[in-house]
Design a protein around this nucleic acid. Structure first.
Length: 710
RNA sequence: GGGCGAUUAGCUCAGUUGGUAGAGCAACUCGUUUACACCGAGAAGGUCGGGGGUUCGAGUCCCUCAUCGCCCACCA
């Protein structure tokens, strides 16, 4: 007769067991696929979306880790050679600005006071110091990541990969340098890509100014100094007396100027007066018009958002201050016809919040529409991205995001990849006079100067599935684990990241980066609001995990959380699964007590066999759910079966049978078998409590639950 | 301006291919001499946003309207 372990006599205490269980798993080496004994089903790989190296664990991370860990544990138990590869992200702009603020606050100096080299050293020190925080927090929620393969988006290996990729794309003519109109962020002092622009609604004024015989409409008087082209629709009857190319002299802000009439069908006759003047240096639309008709470009605003000498008396003023003054002056000259209230969207930089000022600048771009020869066929990067999803080499879950993805590709312009910040992968291009040199390593000889700019952080992130596996070297890992099986991430970075990974991987390897994409939603508070520090409604996963147990937290994040949908998380929900953990604990003790005198498994009675078969069917159902990434259903079914069927029905009836000695050994065998199998099935979702209980339920020759057969 | 999603019990949400409406929380009644009160038993609660259609049959498919939310877009 076995003794029921003393530990089971008190309620389940997650804090007492979690840390040591995690160490036990780590020590076992089973997080590393090379150490797995059963790998008959072949490789299964997930690369972890790298959290910011300087970040702390938030509920978004917790969801991501819970989902991926559940899938990885499931596959590992099924007998796959599972690799879940961790890493951290250098998050160029975000990290640099954090360190800049810190240095400003602590030492009162800007990055320029330190100089590039010293500043980068400071950033690196900061990153190294804070990196362990996020890593240990990932561990604390039970993530069975292979830490032996930990990567960093800007370490030496990844830098080599980035330089190699840049060079390859440069040689293929896919990375080009050009003077184009770009999104300049005066606050962050860098160019950003179209995807980093966020449109924010702004209430402002709409001004109607007299411009010679016309009335022009504008929301931005401060850009209008040099406006010498006046544009209207060729079929606008109101202006039919004027001809394209006609010149006339008009009185304007700082005196008379010679204006040229442009007729173009892109003008909306219904909007305003149907006439506008254009400012090609500071407007995307105007830029295109100017290119079309080969007009002059003149810069009006500098990179700090101040007016240039062309503004005459207004030179040096911030645009915001200048606007009023200019309107006043026009008013004094009698050129203001009317002013209306106006609501429109202004472009802001999503990171810094600065208002974007379009500028013409020399930058580096990835040409997405340019044809090139790719493994023997002519294609474009856009086509590569499109085909991967179109032909289902990559499937996106939920599938409605496939439409969103295609729509994004259709509207995609060349990707501006150069940034005027210091922290990041430096562009591997050197200049000497008019010579330009691009290679993985610096050129020989004197007088070469490297390009000052760094790369968009998503450039290196785009290579993440294969740079982490050793590319450009032909490593065993790359051959074994690429393409990866699943990318699980938030739908908010579908464009930034998912699309770029598909582009980079199909381009460089002629392989998709992953076979499936699983997009989870945002974690919101119980009222459905976005969690934010300013609202004070954030739920810290570390607190929840400490208070209710990691298993409870994980269940709360998984049950009912279908792909693509936002999850409303209240503390009540976590508490409910803490109760469930305790239920498992108590039921396990009870089963162990009632079966202590069972020496060897008995054959099942017909009735018990039927119950067992019903469980088998449930488990098969659950297996299918997990295989199709329906964790929200699988977890709920396990919960219901354990509580409603196993505890409330089977244990209740069988304890009577055991007491009355009716088919006792069959009853005992069934209880023990069902408990064992449910611990296995629950393990991917609630790894800690199940592994802990497994110690008491397993047979002597059984290994850890983490590697037990599903 | 385009696209997408949501609308199911008081609250938060499930409902995989159309086949007699589900869970958690809350509220109600009862129960504490033996697994668990972090519990059990029981009862209550829904014309599945409105309207129309397809079907033997619709929460599920189609059309339409309404409200809320998200994404995309260079109307000055």
């Amino acid at each position: 007769m076995k003794q029921v372990p003393e530990q089971l006599l008190k309620p389940y205490n997650s804090q007492e067991v979690e840390t040591s269980l995690y160490s036990m798993w780590e020590d076992s080496g089973y997080f590393n696929p090379d150490n797995l004994k059963r790998t008959e089903k072949g490789p299964y790989t997930i690369i972890l979306p790298p959290p910011n190296a300087t970040g702390v664990l938030h509920s978004g991370h917790a969801v991501m880790l819970a989902i991926q860990d559940a899938i990885i544990r499931f596959k590992r138990m099924q007998g796959y050679k599972t690799l879940w590869l961790p890493g951290t992200d250098h998050a160029a702009i975000a990290t640099q600005s954090v360190v800049e603020k810190k240095l400003q606050k602590e030492e009162g100096k800007s990055r320029h006071d330190y100089g590039r080299e010293e500043f980068l050293k400071r950033v690196n020190d900061f990153v190294v110091a804070s990196q362990n925080t996020i890593i240990s927090q990932c561990k604390s929620v039970g993530s069975s990541l292979d830490w032996s393969r930990l990567a960093f988006t800007i370490d030496e290996e990844r830098n080599l990969a980035v330089r190699t990729m840049f060079k390859k794309m440069y040689d293929d003519g896919l990375i080009i340098q050009g003077n184009r109109i770009v999104n300049w962020d005066p606050k962050g002092q860098t160019v950003i890509s179209d995807d980093e622009v966020e449109y924010v609604e702004e209430k402002t004024k709409f001004y109607y100014f007299k411009y010679g015989p016309f009335t022009i409409g504008t929301a931005r008087p401060e850009t209008k100094f040099g406006d010498k082209y006046v544009v209207m629709h060729p079929e606008d009857a109101r202006y039919k007396e004027y001809e394209h190319g006609q010149k006339l002299t008009v009185e304007w802000i700082n005196g008379p100027i010679e204006a040229t009439i442009i007729k173009d069908a892109s003008i909306d006759m219904e909007f305003g007066t149907g006439v506008m003047t254009i400012t090609p240096w500071h407007s995307m639309v105007d830029f295109e018009l100017a290119q079309k008709y080969k007009l002059d470009f003149e810069q009006i605003i500098d990179k700090y958002g101040k007016l240039l000498p062309v503004a005459g008396e207004f030179a040096g003023m911030k645009i915001k201050d200048a606007r009023e003054k200019i309107v006043e002056k026009l008013q004094a000259k009698g050129l203001v016809e009317k002013i209306e209230d106006y609501t429109h969207n202004i472009a802001t930089a999503s990171r810094s919040g600065g208002i974007i000022e379009p500028q013409i600048m020399k930058q580096w771009f990835v040409a997405v529409d340019k044809e090139f020869t790719h493994f023997g066929t002519i294609t474009t990067l856009k086509q590569l991205m499109k085909k991967a999803v179109e032909f289902q080499s990559v499937t996106i879950l939920p599938d409605r995001f496939e439409k969103v993805y295609f729509h994004w590709i259709d509207n995609l312009h060349d990707w501006c990849i150069s940034r005027q910040i210091w922290y990041g992968h430096r562009i591997p291009v050197w200049y000497k006079g008019n010579e330009i040199y691009c290679d993985i390593n610096p050129p020989q000889g004197e007088g070469w100067v490297q390009d000052e700019d760094t790369l968009d952080t998503w450039f290196s992130s785009g290579m993440w599935t294969f740079s982490t596996l050793g590319w450009p070297e032909k490593t065993q890992d790359l051959a074994t684990f690429h393409p990866t099986d699943l990318l699980e991430t938030g739908h908010d970075i579908l464009f930034f990241w998912v699309a770029r990974m598909i582009m980079m991987s199909t381009y460089a390897l002629n392989q998709v980066p992953f076979k499936s994409v699983y997009l989870h939603g945002l974690v919101r508070d119980a009222q459905g609001r976005k969690m934010s520090k300013s609202l004070g409604n954030t739920l810290d996963p570390r607190d929840l995990s400490a208070k209710y147990g990691t298993d409870a937290l994980r269940m709360a994040l998984l049950v009912g959380n279908g792909p693509g949908n936002d999850l409303k998380l209240g503390e009540d929900k976590v508490k409910a699964y803490k109760n469930f953990a305790n239920k498992i604990w108590n039921a396990s003790r009870f089963v162990l007590e009632k079966t202590a005198d069972l020496t060897s498994p008995a054959s099942l009675s017909q009735e018990d066999q039927a119950l067992y078969d019903a469980w088998k069917a449930t488990k098969e159902d659950i297996t299918g759910d997990i295989e199709h990434y329906r964790l929200h259903l699988a977890s709920e079914k396990l919960y219901n079966y354990f509580w409603k069927t196993f505890c409330d029905v089977i244990i209740e009836s069988h304890k009577v049978r055991i007491a009355n000695n009716t088919d006792k050994e069959s009853a005992q065998t069934l209880l023990l078998t069902l408990l064992r199998e449910q611990l296995i099935a629950l393990h991917p979702f609630m790894p800690f409590i199940t592994e802990e209980l497994w110690k008491y339920v397993k047979n002597s020759d059984d290994d850890l639950l983490i590697v037990s057969a599903w």
